[in-house]
């Protein structure tokens, strides 16, 4: 009970400790992001010699941008376009097959339903990278690697999205409502499109969001499937830039194609779409980690 003798002091010390802990971690999480923003506005010399947390200038940012855009005749633009195409196509496909599947698993009766549900749950909890090499081996046997489909189709397979949809329909949409629609003469298809789908907007947005973030950030799959630089998404393109940066590859020396601030800017460009989506919808992501979980 020694703490009771000097409660004021102990309490103050405890509070100070807590404050230091929280601020130290806040700094740890924020500092790299701040540095990234500032470093993209600096010249290569300033990046090394100026204070790491001082800003550069808008002019330098523009110069860095121009250099970045001229890298390998506009490769960055190609990679960003590829990323958009791959992500958009696979999100569309994920929604197209995933939403009806989750709906059916929640509200319809058919043979194999429970098995499908369990398989979905197991695959959902496995890291997607575990299947990348097996998928590569399979597609390489079928002669399908190095095609847009070889990244889009595997990315469209998104059991987590199906599970989210399943949870949404089994908890948030009353089955009676759909029975009523059927009694009114709606067929299964009409019930889905006219009644269920309009109710499912929140979960469609949620699945689209997760699928987009996952696909955009996917590295291993396109890295394995697409050997040509022209087909790289931005995440894989970054490795090409890394190889052309003198700091991380002295062999390129003075003729380096990419100066470090340009690599910083490329990193910033590569995360911009996801970062924007993130800032506007952070609740979504948390909802995803806990979605469908029963109360802890």
């Amino acid at each position: 009970m020694r703490t009771d003798q000097r409660p004021g002091v102990v309490r103050m010390a405890g509070r100070a400790l807590v404050a230091v802990l929280l601020l130290a971690f806040a700094l740890f999480f924020v500092l790299p992001m701040v540095w990234l923003l500032l470093a993209s506005t600096k010249s290569p010399a300033d990046l090394i010699h100026a204070n790491p947390l001082s800003p550069g200038s808008i002019g330098t940012l523009v110069t860095n941008w121009q250099h970045l855009m001229s890298f390998q005749d506009g490769a960055v633009l190609t990679w960003m376009t590829n990323s958009v195409v791959y992500s958009a196509l696979s999100v569309a496909l994920t929604l197209l097959v995933g939403i009806p599947a989750g709906y059916a698993m929640a509200l319809m009766r058919f043979g194999g339903r429970r098995l499908l549900l369990i398989v979905t749950l197991v695959v959902m909890l496995m890291p997607a990278t575990a299947l990348v090499l097996p998928i590569f081996l399979e597609l390489s046997y079928l002669g399908l690697v190095n095609k847009t489909a070889s990244v889009v189709l595997p990315m469209a397979f998104f059991p987590f999205g199906v599970y989210l949809t399943y949870i949404y329909f089994s908890t948030s949409v009353p089955g009676d409502l759909l029975d009523a629609a059927r009694l009114d003469g709606c067929g299964e298809t009409a019930t889905f499109f006219r009644v269920a789908l309009p109710l499912a907007k929140p979960v469609v947005a949620l699945v689209a969001f997760f699928s987009f973030v996952n696909n955009w950030n996917n590295f291993f799959l396109p890295y394995v499937m697409l050997p040509n630089s022209d087909n790289y998404p931005m995440q894989v393109g970054l490795t090409q830039m890394l190889a052309a940066t003198p700091t991380f590859n002295p062999v390129v020396g003075a003729n380096a194609e990419v100066q470090p601030p340009e690599l910083v800017l490329a990193t910033l460009v590569s995360i911009a779409p996801v970062l924007l989506v993130f800032l506007f919808s952070q609740r979504f992501l948390v909802a995803g980690l806990t979605a469908g979980a029963t109360k802890g």
Binding site: F25, F29, V30, N218, T239, T267, V274, L275, F278, V286
Partner: peptide, 12 residues
Amino acid sequence: VYYVPGALAGAS
């Protein structure tokens, strides 16, 4: 603040 870096994954 703790959460935002989650936007960066993979190579970035």
